[in-house]
Structure formats: structure tokens, C-alpha cells
Amino acid sequence: MRVLGIESSCDETGVAVYDTAAGLLAHRVYSQIELHQDYGGVVPELASRDHVRKLLPLLRETLTAAGLGVRDLDGVAYTSGPGLVGALLVGAATARALAWSLDLPAIGVHHMEGHLLAPLLEPDAPQPPFVALLVSGGHTQLIAVRGIGEYELIGDTLDDAAGEAFDKTAKMLGLPYPGGPELARLAESGTPGRFRFARPMCDRPGLDFSFSGLKTQVLLAWEKSDRSDQTRADIARGFEQAVTETLATKCRRALAETGMRALVVAGGVGANLRLRAALHTAAVNDGFNVAFPRPEFCTDNGAMIAFAGALRLAAGQRQDTSIAVRPRWPLEELLATTPAEPLTLR
């Protein structure tokens, strides 16, 4: 079964074709980062406008790369939430209408399920059960994945997401948008240990996160400092260390509490090299497996949507011809719609 996947929940347009027998056939992502740079953040209306301009050309390019025409497709999957409503609607409407015109089944995919399953696109991917760390600009969650489609939220952030903390901290330090990756780059030239910030919520039991206090600590340190370039880099390093160590501590706890032996990491912050290193070290020390999607599948992409959609279509799930998006869609509510039988490709 060849499934077209379309992602348009925020500021990336993603298109991919996944074949349940042959794997990923082609994928393309167009990032709007430059478009939003002058605004200091994603402007929802501009994001929607760009999706509608870019989606079809990207779709044609992806099909060409896969050597396919629209008539070679067997199903269409699209991100139906959570995300920016206008942006979601462009992908959902185009995808649903395309499927309608070809009499193909269509399915709306939960964006976070896409991220959660993205590591499974890789060869030698761990199979459930595993713990997933979803860590992005909008999420910091620990999820116990008992089977595909069987998710239990076991840890969540009480305030800022980790990626959001990166972006906001970068802004405080005067770094250009999008600040997160910029801050990580700067941290590489920082002195480890010169600034040590508290590891939030690590001194008490539980799997929840909180990053807003850390942001305040950084602000105070920056305001009291000489504000030199080196200090900025040193603070960035201290901040990054606090975040990555906190994430690693909670992952180890989650594995211990669930008794699971594998960790998968997904979401934009999953591309952070220090986080990867910290989790690799923890994996060696504690004896668990850790898997990351390739960096391009950490950020938003169509491949993960095509993959998650293929699983659900193969299980017989369908979206009727109404075009529906859910800008706010807690992952827990996806659980209620999950079939009793775990989803598999066979």
C-alpha cells in the first residue's frame, strides 16, 4: 500500500510517499523559517499563505522523485492536528480533496503520533514496547508505547516545552530567530561548568518537567553578567546542560518505572547533539537501547505522517469526506479512538 503523507501543522510543508512493503519512497520538506524571521516568530496567517503556495509544487516534486503519478497511490494521510488551524486546513483540504477525486481512502493523523513513530522509519528501529521522549517547541512529553497505537502519557511539562525554553532563552540572550538551534550552536563555544543552573524537578519524584524557572535563572545570570560574547556562550552552555541533563534524568526514571528497555527520541529538540550524547551515555550506563530518527525526521516532515497514516489505513481506519482539523488535540484523546487491536503493517 502506497500512502501519500502531507504535513502542514506549523511552518514546514512536508510531503512523502511511504510504501508498506518497500518503505519510504520519497520525501520533501519546505521550511518557512526565513519567511518568519523578520517577525520574531511564526505568523499563523503568513504560514497558511505559504503552505497553499508551496504544497502542490512540493507534492509534484515528491511524486516525481518517487517515480509515481497520483494514480499509483493507494491512500492519503494528512496531519489533522494539533497545530495552527489555518495551516492544518490547507494540508487537510488538499489531501482530502485529492483522495476524494481518486476515490482513495484518507486518514487524518495526529501530529505527535507522527513524531512518536518517526524513529520506526529507520532500519533496525526498536519495536514496542518502548518509552518515547517527545521533545519539541510545543511538547515535552514522556510516553509509554506498549504497541503502535497504544500510548500512555507518563510525563509532561507543567509550563514551557523544552524547545520553547531554548527559543525564549535565545531571545533573552539576543540571538536571532529561530533561537533554539542558534543557542545550541553558541553553546558549543561555551565553557562547561562556568554557569550551573538548577535541574528543574529532578530533586523530587515523578516524570513531569518544568522549564520556566530555568529561563528566569538564565535571565538573572545574564543581567548580572558582563554581557560579553564569551559569557553569552558560557550561559548558553550552562542552560543547554541543565536542559539535557534534566531530560536524560527523567528518561532514565521513565525506563526504570515502566521496566521498558528501549528509548526513542522524537521532535525537533531530538536533533540536539548534547541531548543525543547525554542519552547515549545514560544508555550505556543503564543498559538500555536508544534510537533517534535522522535529524531531518526530528523536525516536522511528511514521512512520519505517511508512515503513521499507512499504519492506520492498513488497520482499516478512514476519514469521511468532511474536512476536519483539530488545532488542540491532546494525545490522550487519540487513545480513545485507537482500535483494541494494536496496529501493525502485516
Binding site: L59, V70, V90, A93, T94, A97, L98, W100, S101
Partner: peptide, 15 residues
Amino acid sequence: RLGISVAQGIALGLD
């Protein structure tokens, strides 16, 4: 955008 997206999707599918 909804109208344009639906029209684009149908037209792409039907060529």
C-alpha cells in the same frame, strides 16, 4: 484558502 485547496486537490487528482 479552503476553496483553493479543495480545487487544487481535485484538479491534481483528475488532471
